[in-house]
């Protein structure tokens, strides 16, 4: 079983968010990388069934969301973390998760109570369960969003920038959580953190201007930049991007001059090669 996306098209006014995008996702964790405005959020919202495409088709978990009954069934089997977790600030943490659990048809009270406790424990929010949402930090809100997405151990987990606002310890815990989501499950996440992709994802998809630039494993993405990353004392004319690294040398991406000291590319290097100068508009943590 796969998630199959065919010729997906979506416009917002004059802006094309998705331009006949086709993609096939396998079970496991797939990371979406791309500059701001690349179409990542639009794609995830369509996968989460909260936004309809203008054209094209989606088939997820063997279900076609354009059919009302199948869309309902898909919603029973998916968890969605939107980019902005819009929780009711007057609610207690536990109360909000309980509310979403009710909407997700967890009708048996005892089972629901246990499930709410389980997801709060997973995201390390048990000790904040009775705190008002307005009083918790941004990182905790993110974890709250993640907790509601994990309700019912969904077969398809759609996470829009799940690691934003998490401290290093929480990010490690998040990685552990997602990587152990379960065999056969689909996890699709967008991120600006290439190290999350390298550490977590079985597959990576780079999109830009609503089109797919790359699909493959993180290792294949890194390998795609072989011969395009080098190091020298100062910026060379052929460099698209260059920055002074911690050891004082200048790491450069682009067309290396003859005799340049090539270095093994990372996932981040390869991403920068793919999207070029547009990377400067993203949140990727590179000092240029």
């Amino acid at each position: 079983m796969t998630v199959h996306i065919e010729q997906l098209h979506k416009r917002f006014g004059r802006t094309t968010a998705l331009d006949r995008l086709s993609l096939e996702l396998q079970p496991g964790v797939t990371g979406l990388l791309g500059p701001n405005g690349a179409g990542k959020t639009t794609l995830l919202r369509i996968l989460a069934t909260v936004l309809a495409p203008d054209g094209g088709s989606v088939r997820a978990l063997g279900l076609d969301p354009s059919q009302p009954a199948e869309r309902q069934e898909l919603r029973r089997r998916l968890g969605y973390l939107p980019q902005d977790v819009g929780a009711y600030s007057g609610f207690a943490v536990r109360e909000f998760i309980d509310y979403i659990a009710i909407l997700k048809e967890h009708t048996d009270r005892r089972a629901r109570r246990a499930e709410v406790d389980r997801v709060l424990e997973l995201v390390d929010l048990t000790d904040k369960a009775y705190d008002r949402i307005r009083t918790i930090s941004g990182g905790m809100r993110r974890r709250l969003g993640l907790a509601q997405a994990l309700l019912g151990s969904p077969d398809l987990l759609v996470l829009d920038e799940p690691a934003v606002g998490l401290d290093p310890q929480q990010r490690l815990r998040f990685r552990e959580l997602v990587s152990t989501a379960g065999p056969g499950r689909f996890v699709v996440l967008s991120t600006h953190q290439t190290e999350d992709v390298a550490a977590l994802c079985r597959d990576v998809v780079v999109i830009d201007a609503g089109r797919v630039l790359f699909t493959g494993t993180p290792a294949e993405l890194a390998a795609s930049a072989d011969g395009r990353v080098w190091r020298s004392d100062s910026r060379d004319p052929g460099a698209t991007l260059a920055w002074v690294s911690g050891d004082g040398s200048t790491r450069q991406i682009g067309r290396p001059p003859a005799g340049a000291e090539l270095v093994p590319p990372t996932v981040e290097d390869a991403y920068l090669v793919l999207v070029g100068a547009k990377a400067l508009t993203t949140d990727v943590s590179v000092a240029v």
């Binding site: 919202r45 989460a48 069934t49 909260v50 309902q72 919603r75 029973r76 998916l78 969605y80 939107p82 902005d84 977790v85 819009g86 929780a87 009711y88 600030s89 909000f96 979403i100 909407l103 997700k104 048809e105 969003g145 509601q148 759609v158």
Partner: peptide, 13 residues
């Protein structure tokens, strides 16, 4: 309704 995106992804009609 700040939680509308999450609610919309639920099976509640």
């Amino acid at each position: 309704d700040p939680a509308l995106a999450i609610v919309s992804a639920s099976p509640y009609r």
